[in-house]
């Protein structure tokens, strides 16, 4: 995983609550054995019409949002299934940060493992962001802060371990494997009991 320290980008907003993983990537696109190339299916049923043509009125299709790396969404983003295809699809579509007032547990976990940063901010702040599409924000992982263009900022919570992993590009599997002695000792202790 590549380190993730700071990011500056315009925001794009999806002002809906409870955006579930079936919206982020519908199940019929899960018959794949790889994690690559899923970006074209991100929000598929909102992005394309019956004929498969992009809907001009869907916010992520609009040319002015093409460079947005920060997605701002309504409360309880990422609820539903455990499919890691959801963060894979978002990342492949260019999204690096998701801001919401509440982010579902499994989605948050999956996101962090892939270098997609989940940022939880108070609902009132999220609402003001949703009202300002295209606003440029800066996200600083080390400082746990989101900066407005005028230098104003808010602090967001992030687990210390997840933060280190992001900053240093640490891979969790490597970390777990380094604990092998403790795991073996646990297995032996249990076996003896």
């Amino acid at each position: 995983m590549n380190p993730f320290r700071t990011l500056e980008s315009p925001i794009v907003g999806l002002p809906r609550a409870n955006i579930d993983t079936d919206q982020i990537i519908p199940a019929r696109f899960l018959t794949t054995t790889t994690r690559e190339g899923l970006g074209r299916h991100a929000f598929h049923d909102w992005r394309y019409d019956e004929q498969g043509a992009p809907r001009a009125d869907f916010v992520l299709n609009r040319p002015e949002h093409r460079d947005a790396r920060i997605l701002v969404a309504g409360r309880n983003f990422g609820c539903g299934s455990s499919r890691e295809h959801a963060p894979w699809a978002l990342l492949d579509a260019g999204i690096r940060v998701v801001i919401s007032s509440e982010i579902a547990d499994i989605f948050r976990n999956n996101a962090l493992k892939n270098g997609l940063l989940p940022v939880v901010l108070p609902e009132a702040v999220v609402d003001t962001l949703l009202a300002q599409p295209g606003l440029r924000l800066q996200v600083d992982v080390a400082k746990r802060r989101v900066y407005w263009p005028d230098g104003e900022h808010v602090t967001f919570p992030i687990d210390a371990f997840a933060q280190t992993c992001l900053l240093e590009g640490v891979d969790e599997l490597g970390y777990l494997r380094a604990q092998d002695a403790a795991i073996t000792a646990f297995e032996e202790r249990r076996h003896a009991a």
Binding site: R35, S81, S82, R83, E84, I106, N109, N110, K113, N114, E172, L173, L176
Partner: peptide, 10 residues
């Protein structure tokens, strides 16, 4: 509990 594919690997 449910896990993602990375954790399946773990």
């Amino acid at each position: 509990f449910g896990i993602g594919s990375s954790e399946v690997g773990h």
